Computed example of a mutant assay.
Amino acid sequence: MAAAATAQPALDGSGIDGSLFTSVTDFARDTKWLNTPMEVWTNLGLGVFAILMIAGWWTARRRGPRAMTVALAAPVAVLAAFAAAEVVKKLVAEVRPCRSMPHAYFVDTCPAPSDYAFPSGHATVAAATVAALFLLDRRLSAVAAVFAVLEGFSRVYVGAHYPHDVLGSAAVALPVALLVSSALSRWATPLVGSLSHGRLRPLLAAELVATTAPARQAASAGDPL
């Protein structure tokens, strides 16, 4: 009896926005031709955010130590946000929709009872990437934001999370990623600048090609630094 009480989840999210959740999953039921693409995207789509961070690193090679530091800080910021989300997930212990609303339509399989819902880890990675790239290149951040919205929607579409799980992910990820990226850009820029003159130079810097002033302005149009 005591073990059952201990296993009881602390929060049933169906009372928060269960009706909105079922509206989305009903849409999934009515668009079964989209089920497989959305299920593939919801997991493999995280690779898009890795690609965007790699693109940020590549362009930062021509923009100096500070930009490179922010680029290198991006994956660290994402990992920090994910870790913070995992802590919140254990503290809140919200039961997954597949357990609290078993009669809804689900594309995704139901995870283990210990795999809680709030916040969404996938959506956390997406939102944290948006925040980390915002400090580096706002054009890349805008692209990441589009994919982050799609990622968040897909988590609800496949039945893995409630809408508030996705919104909660943004509430956790955005400030954590921004703080970590900002702190690292202040503390580690001198180290990156020093390393960029050694053996790691090909990874941290690129030879600048002389350009005209208009060309330089165009190249830095997306740089918030």
Results as ranks from 00 to 15, higher is better:
110 C>L: 07
44 L>Q: 15
168 G>V: 10
209 V>D: 12
101 M>A: 13
5 A>N: 11
162 Y>V: 05
99 R>H: 15
24 V>Y: 04
32 K>G: 14
113 P>N: 11
39 E>N: 15
153 F>K: 01
68 M>K: 00
67 A>G: 00
7 A>C: 05
137 D>P: 02
161 H>F: 07
27 F>W: 06
153 F>Q: 02
28 A>Y: 11
78 V>E: 04
49 F>R: 13
66 R>W: 04
162 Y>P: 00
73 A>L: 08
19 S>H: 14
28 A>Q: 08
42 T>Q: 06
155 R>T: 04
109 T>S: 15
15 G>F: 05
126 A>F: 01
72 L>Q: 03
130 V>F: 13
126 A>Q: 05
142 A>I: 10
164 H>F: 08
108 D>V: 07
152 G>I: 05
107 V>P: 08
114 S>T: 10
176 V>L: 00
150 L>G: 09
118 F>H: 02
119 P>S: 14
205 A>S: 11
94 E>Q: 15
124 T>D: 03
179 L>S: 01
87 V>P: 02
33 W>S: 15
95 V>H: 12
183 A>F: 10
107 V>M: 05
138 R>Y: 05
115 D>S: 14
46 L>H: 10
80 A>M: 07
58 W>T: 06
140 L>R: 11
105 Y>S: 10
153 F>G: 02
202 P>E: 12
180 V>P: 04
71 A>E: 00
217 Q>L: 15
214 P>E: 00
200 L>T: 02
83 A>V: 06
177 A>V: 08
49 F>D: 05
124 T>K: 06
165 D>I: 00
73 A>G: 13
105 Y>E: 12
206 A>C: 01
203 L>T: 03
199 R>V: 13
122 H>I: 05
109 T>G: 14
84 A>K: 09
198 G>Q: 06
153 F>V: 03
166 V>D: 08
153 F>P: 07
58 W>Q: 13
190 P>S: 02
58 W>H: 14
31 T>P: 12
191 L>F: 06
142 A>W: 08
192 V>L: 06
60 A>G: 02
3 A>T: 11
147 F>K: 08
182 S>N: 12
35 N>M: 10
169 S>W: 06
16 I>C: 01
191 L>K: 09
208 L>S: 09
120 S>H: 06
60 A>T: 00
193 G>K: 01
163 P>S: 04
124 T>V: 03
200 L>M: 12
2 A>Q: 13
86 E>C: 11
175 P>L: 09
51 I>N: 09
155 R>H: 06
67 A>S: 04
12 D>F: 10
162 Y>S: 04
126 A>C: 04
5 A>P: 06
147 F>Y: 11
68 M>Y: 00
186 R>F: 13
122 H>W: 10
219 A>R: 14
56 G>H: 02
